[in-house]
Simulated assay, not measured.
Amino acid sequence: MNLYNLYGLKMTHQEIANYRLASQKIFKMTQQTPQEIVRHLGAMQAQDYAMAKWAIGSRCDASEKSIEEAINSGEIIRTHILRPTWHFVAAEDIRWMLALSAPQVKKFTASAAKKYGFDDKKLDQTNSSIEKLLAGNNHLTRDEIMQELDIKKTSSQDFLSAVIMMNAELDGLVCNGRMKGKQITYALLDERVLKSEMKLTTEEALAKLAKRYFESHGPATLLDFSWWSGFSIAIIKSVINLIESELDSIEINNQKYWFRLDVIDIDNFHESVHFLPAFDEILISYKTREASILLEHQPKAFTNNGIFKPVILENGKVIGTWKRTIKKDHMKVETQFFTVTDEAKKSIVFEEIKHFENYLETKVIIE
């Protein structure tokens, strides 16, 4: 049992923020591979492809090129899972995680497809056509696939094409293929990832997902896990008992927070600054985010319709945002702090950008 439970101490929001830095592999540089980082976190939101790669890179000593190689080789899979959005998932986790979450996400795709006259039968027929197109490691872009399916590229039909490909992903037929220049392609999942003999019941898979989440994102509540996983609180409550003995917990304001048993000692924390990408797990993976960002600053970091900006963290707290612009021979980074920041503090903050510079393998200039 941890010291908080043993002596009846209370955990503060600052301590929660510190623990999350450690559990999410942000606090200290790790020698883990990109695939190991993704596996540790379970699934990493990845609709912004460039930023999602930096989400991995900010947690390990890997360049953007090496992370892209892991994605192109199929060690890391980018697909729709958990919720109706893109995620990175380790290849070894894709099948059990897909089997668990696909039925709930398919409710969204089925509803959207029906608006275009695509029922289950027509979606299955379309899947068969897609399978023939991609067979033999033939990696194609969405536009190339739609052209072969004779689905015109219009604003309304573009949404239909997204639904068709998402349905094929959720059925375990396709996943991301190798990048074609800057274009994302699709490939057959069976040609990218070996089939697994492991069969889990829904209860076993949900318990495994929950344990993975709380160990990699904790301290976090059941409501946080519900938001991240897409499963209802009622379903989650029925499963948490299965892993209760494998986790630690503490109550704050009548809310129970769960985290890994061997969480790092709070005394080991030191001053730290981190430049994190848009849609990073440090914010997006929690339903409530007061531990990491003050309420009055939240509209500056993310919008009500779910757009998350790249953020600057100081000791686990969001203190500003940043954006990057690609130039011919360097990367320009512009920062915006929430409060007035003295130049001495700014220079310390800007020292952390060196990690981003190493990741990009190009010069970064801050303006």
Rank of each mutant, 00 (worst) to 15 (best):
I319W: 06
S347T: 12
T321D: 09
T341G: 03
Q336H: 12
D342W: 08
F350N: 09
F338W: 11
V349M: 11
T321P: 05
F338Y: 15
V340P: 02
I326H: 14
E314F: 12
M331V: 14
E314C: 07
F350I: 05
H355P: 04
E352I: 00
T325E: 14
I319N: 01
E357D: 09
T341I: 15
D329I: 01
M331C: 13
H330G: 00
K327T: 04
K345N: 12
T362C: 13
N315G: 02
L313Y: 07
D329V: 01
I326C: 05
K332I: 07
K346N: 02
Y359I: 10
V333C: 13
T335D: 07
F338P: 06
L360H: 09
V333W: 13
T325R: 08
A344Q: 11
S347P: 02
T339R: 13
K323T: 05
K346V: 11
L360V: 10
V340K: 14
F337H: 09
V333H: 10
Y359E: 08
E314M: 13
E357C: 08
V349D: 00
Y359Q: 06
V349E: 05
Q336S: 07
E352S: 15
L313C: 01
H330D: 09
K328T: 13
K346G: 01
G316E: 00
D329A: 00
L313A: 04
D342E: 12
D329M: 01
T339C: 10
D329Q: 00
I312V: 15
K328R: 08
N315V: 01
N358V: 00
L313I: 05
F338M: 08
N358C: 05
L360C: 11
W322L: 06
D329W: 00
